[in-house]
């Protein structure tokens, strides 16, 4: 099938969906491009090539390898770690290729490439006209990790912030940047950075390795886990960067991953099991909400009353995405690319 046809199909799919939902609400869902109104799945791929899969909100439209299809076979690099957004721009991070591909998030047309000044880039966020991207540099060293500060008018790295700890996930809240200092069970803190001065304001000790985090109502929820200790949830009061409370998980829930907060609930995963708990829970039950159909649960998120799970399988064959209701009823599944690791939403 020619791309133009696909585009048409995708376009029609979106409009059909829009017309169906018109009765329910009057939100303007006019698509801003072929890949609006849908889910973007990042397929990490191998050292040479990753890809993005688009799944329409109609739960029917699917387009594999969106970027290459739109940009005449060009690639986004290997080991595609994550994406972040700024207005209608999407930034796609490839950590094998030390490259960020900047595209229009709705059309996937190439805008620019940032391919110098990066060293194993991982996650990024935009604040006040600049992008902040964590870089791990050498995996065996925790003293060379940094945050690259990217000027979004030139798309060039203009300065770096040394972390002196692992640089992994990053989020922005109330003008401050928060970086998890943990990967693969290593590291034990969260760094707080003032982007106005590029200075580290505070380092919050989480005890064990932070695997994922989210902010909700002024509190940073940090999920921590490694291969030996019991996992735990650490709540940090962002007004003073002090630890508010901690919840230690049952021993059976070791190395908990993928914290996601939706509608006042916490969700996370252990192996292929999906768990949920109240935001203010003081204990965590060993009983999962449900067990997903993934053989290797890799990417996970909860959005708009849907639970998205990606299956990396054996890391050497195309993956799969499962979409569940918040009670764990399977609604739909889709084939995606090699090693799907995350979900992003174009609504």
């Amino acid at each position: 099938m020619k791309f133009s046809k696909l585009l048409l199909v995708a376009f029609l799919g979106s409009t059909v969906f829009v017309s169906c939902s018109d009765d329910d609400d009057k939100v303007d869902n006019t698509p801003l491009g072929a890949y609006d109104n849908g889910v973007l799945v990042v397929n990490e791929g191998n050292g040479t090539a990753g890809s993005i899969t688009y799944i329409g909100n109609d739960m029917t439209t699917i387009q594999q390898d969106v970027y290459s299809v739109v940009n005449e076979g060009d690639g986004i690099g290997g080991y595609v770690q994550s994406m972040f957004f700024d207005g209608d721009k999407a930034f796609i991070i490839s950590n094998a290729s030390n490259k960020i591909t900047v595209v229009n998030r709705y059309t996937f047309e190439l805008i620019d490439k940032i391919d110098s000044g990066l060293n194993i880039p991982r996650y990024g966020v935009v604040e006040n006209g600049k992008a902040y991207v964590t870089n791990q540099a050498a995996f065996d060293s925790t003293t060379d990790d940094f945050v690259a500060v990217i000027n979004l008018s030139t798309y060039e790295v203009e300065s770096t912030i040394a972390l002196n700890a692992i640089g992994e996930r990053i989020l922005e809240e109330n003008g401050k940047l928060y970086v998890t200092n943990g990967t693969y069970g290593e590291g034990n803190s969260v760094t707080v950075i003032n982007p106005a001065s590029n200075a580290i304001i505070s380092t919050i000790n989480t005890g064990i390795s932070p695997t994922s985090f989210e902010e909700e109502n002024g509190i940073l929820y940090v999920l921590c886990g490694n291969y030996d200790d019991a996992s735990k949830l650490v709540r940090v009061q962002l007004s003073n960067n002090e630890i508010l409370s901690e919840v230690t998980f049952p021993a059976a829930l070791g190395n908990a991953q993928n914290l996601s907060i939706e509608d006042g609930k916490l969700y996370f995963t252990v192996n292929s099991d999906v768990f949920s708990a109240a935001l203010n829970a003081t204990t965590i039950s060993e009983t999962p909400l449900f067990t997903s159909g993934a053989t290797t649960l890799y990417g996970f998120t909860v959005e708009d009353d849907k639970i998205y799970v990606s299956d990396a399988k054996d890391y050497a064959s195309n993956g799969r995405v499962f979409i569940y209701s918040t009670t764990g009823a399977l609604q739909k599944e889709f084939p995606v690319g090699l090693i799907p690791n995350g979900f992003y939403f174009n609504d």
């Binding site: 693969y184 695997t211 886990g225 291969y227 190395n255 991953q257 192996n271 890799y298 054996d314 890391y315």
Partner: peptide, 11 residues
């Protein structure tokens, strides 16, 4: 003998 992924991406 194959290196297979486990929880948290550890092979």
């Amino acid at each position: 003998i194959r290196w297979l992924p486990g929880n948290g991406g550890m092979f």
